[in-house]
């Protein structure tokens, strides 16, 4: 009797180890190649490492960062891009998802087309957009041909417009992602609820406000958080389109990290900036998720 009981139990224990053993190489690689270098890299934030010498200087890099007006500017641009990206991407993504949920012939093709920008290389498409936005580029030529010469701008060289030009590209790139998330959210709303709303005679606006939007709350949380993270970390598009210019008008925290670290060779300073950016992304994302989750539970 005892043997019969202990037998299966023993097998169960040995079986439980198998998933861990299978996962072990991947977990080790993740820790060794991803987390450990990040932690070690983080410690450089407290040094004046310039590629050769590294001396422990405590929080001096952080004090320097907060005194640097370029960094303050970059912080403002980062918030500007992230905030607008979250709002515009999610509104457009939701509108697209709702439009592309209805059955029509080219629906899947349209969905693929809108999602494609997210799947393409951000850096490569950034260079294409840089060409499009040049003063003699296709956009101004089209505006000229349409008789809208007054609308022609030096999009990427105008300090007032450059940041919004980059925002357009970011929106183009990430709206497809939010569309997919909202499509999944919309698919998750049971058909019976749509039928119930139809039977209850709700207007399209009442249906959207009182039923669709509240039931999309989990999708909104995911989509808003992802777009916030992408907005705060905007780098590829900025680097390829303006490089942070003109006159630092499009500098973001991410481009500052790159510039200080790899252009100026200030590895310690760059690490401190990267640490601040990481902390900022983490804090804002967690705060946003907590807020949206709280809203979800209230719904």
């Amino acid at each position: 009797m005892v043997d019969q009981v202990s037998g299966p139990r023993g097998r169960g224990r040995s079986l439980n180890k198998v998933p861990w053993l299978i996962a072990l190489p991947a977990v080790a690689a993740l820790i060794g190649l991803r987390f450990l270098p990040s932690i070690v890299g983080g410690t450089f934030a407290f040094t004046d490492w310039n590629g050769a010498d590294a001396n422990w200087i405590g929080f001096d890099n952080f004090f320097a960062i907060f005194r640097d007006p370029t960094t303050s500017n970059a912080l403002v641009h980062t918030f500007q891009l992230a905030g607008l990206l979250v709002v515009i991407c999610n509104v457009l993504g939701l509108m697209l998802a709702m439009s592309l949920r209805t059955a029509f012939k080219t629906r899947n093709l349209m969905r693929a087309m809108f999602f494609l920008p997210f799947a393409l290389s951000h850096l490569a498409t950034g260079y294409i957009w840089q060409y499009i936005f040049q003063y003699s580029g296709p956009l101004n030529r089209i505006l000229g041909a349409a008789g809208l010469e007054s609308w022609q701008l030096v999009w990427l060289a105008d300090p007032n417009w450059a940041i919004y030009t980059i925002l357009v590209v970011l929106v183009w790139q990430y709206t497809g992602l939010t569309m997919v998330i909202y499509l999944a959210g919309l698919e998750g709303i049971p058909d019976e609820l749509h039928d119930a709303v139809a039977m209850d005679g709700a207007s399209p606006w009442l249906k959207f406000r009182k039923v669709t939007l509240p039931l999309l709350a989990p999708a909104i949380t995911v989509s808003a958080t992802l777009t916030l993270i992408y907005g705060l970390g905007a780098f590829d598009q900025v680097l390829s389109m303006t490089g942070g210019g003109p006159v630092n008008a499009t500098e973001t925290l991410a481009t500052q990290v790159w510039q200080n670290t790899f252009v100026y060779g200030r590895f310690g300073y760059g690490s401190a900036l990267a640490l601040i950016l990481t902390g900022l992304v983490a804090i804002l994302s967690i705060a946003q998720v907590s807020l949206l989750r709280y809203q979800e539970t209230r719904l």
Binding site: P190, E192, L193, D195, A196, M199, L215, A217, L299
Partner: peptide
């Protein structure tokens, strides 16, 4: 008015 198989109550 209709009563559905799975009730179709608005969960939120």
């Amino acid at each position: 008015a209709m009563v559905f198989q799975n009730y179709a109550l608005y969960p939120h």
